[in-house]
Design a binder for these strands. Structure first.
Lengths: 228, 228
DNA sequence: CAAAGTCAGTTGGAATTCCAACAAGTAGGA
DNA sequence: TCCTACTTGTTGGAATTCCAACTGACTTTG
């Protein structure tokens, strides 16, 4: 476990807890590192929910088994990232875990029991409250990200979705010129629109003198009313 | 405060905590009820975030002040409901609270400091862990609801959005026949599509023998492939 | 440098959605 | 019952999106 202290210290769950405190905290959470071979199921859909996981090494996929038998990839996680925390925290999921977590390579994960995280431990160790605070922060952060995306998705047209996203980015950057973290296909996926249609809309916006683009770098010249 | 014990007991935050324990817990959270007149601002956008609120009486609106000065109504809350909990739990929101919370009638609100909720109190009162658990549950539940909706919204066409929603409802009801909690306009709003276009799509699905409808009652006869 | 790959933009016809207006059905109150 | 209000379904033309295929610019790699 020692060799993973650095990863833990930077993980969203253990952030802000000093290494020496971590060594004290981990056993107190009953968390042992487990090793999984490539292709193994770490958590299986339909099984009771109670623990969440943290990737220590290797790579992990979260997938949803569709009606049709088709597998939808929901997330691909790197060391330090959390999984299943939402399900572990949700009150009573009927039908058990709605996703499967797979090891795509040989990997090690730390499985944590929610109850142990929430209850302040008998030793009264003071880092629990930081832990809880971090966990709340993770859930709230996801919530905000989902909400932000929802605001864009709820716009009806590609044009409105784009303008909504771009004006948000401008606001976050604090200016009319900014670089976005997506390529065109990724942006189209994020906004749930057709890439080619989006490209056409971007061209139109350029022609209208609304913006200029260079790859991922955007400059908004003026905001049309649709941006709200 | 006594007269609100029943509301507290049923609120998502204090659920599962007995009344006598509540009386012990509330002061320990430093939560005093505050009274606001109709139209007063309970929490103001841009101010630092640190507390969340619980409606005790009256009615409260959460609104977002848009760029344009336009006000978007995000939620309308009744006694027992929580507000601003996501913002209070999110780590460091630059720019302060992104929404304003208004009293639309005379009302009473319990404002709670997140730090007090998270830190197990000096008296070591054991209900904190239940409280934390509840709060995690609230955030996780919102997360799941947002995710569910996102799955539908991310479908490209009205038809796909509808089928996605209806097959989810069927799955939740455990059968091909179920009643949805929305009227047509509300459903269209939830799925972010045009009501009339949606009506047309429903007609087409009926004509294709995919489903039957009677007001809010639906019967799925067979699932086309687009439903995934 | 050439070949292959990737990314953004363009195009055109089919399909869908948007929008406004209207029609038909239902519920509640006078 | 009549009136009114509300909900749902329908329609038609304009606008937009979808989809597949292609072009051209730039990158990577052998």
């Amino acid at each position: 476990m020692k060799k993973y202290l650095e990863i833990l210290r930077r993980s969203p769950l253990f952030r802000g807890i000093a290494p020496e405190e971590l060594e004290q905290l981990i056993p107190c959470l009953g968390g042992g590192a487990r090793r999984y071979g490539a292709g193994a199921a770490i958590l299986l859909a339909g099984t009771p929910v109670g623990q969440m996981g943290l990737v220590l090494s290797g790579r992990v996929q979260v997938v949803r088994e569709e009606f049709s038998g088709h597998r939808a990839l929901l997330a691909e996680l790197e060391p330090g990232e959390l999984f299943a925390e939402t399900f572990a925290c949700a009150p009573a999921l009927p039908g058990g875990l709605p996703v499967t977590v797979l090891a795509t390579q040989d990997c090690e994960v730390l499985l944590l029991d929610l109850q142990r995280v929430v209850r302040s431990c008998p030793n009264g160790c003071p880092f629990h409250s930081r832990l809880v605070s971090n966990l709340l922060g993770v859930l709230a952060g996801k919530n905000l990200a989902l909400n932000r995306r929802m605001v864009h998705l709820s716009r009806r047209s590609t044009r409105e979705k784009l303008l909504s996203y771009l004006s948000e980015q401008a606001a976050m950057a604090g200016g009319m010129e900014f670089t976005i973290p997506f390529g065109r296909q990724e942006l189209a996926d994020y906004l749930c629109v057709e890439r080619s249609a989006m490209s056409a809309v971007l061209s139109r916006l350029r022609a209208e003198g609304v913006l200029e683009t260079h790859r991922n770098h955007f400059k908004l010249l003026r905001l049309p009313e649709e941006a709200l």
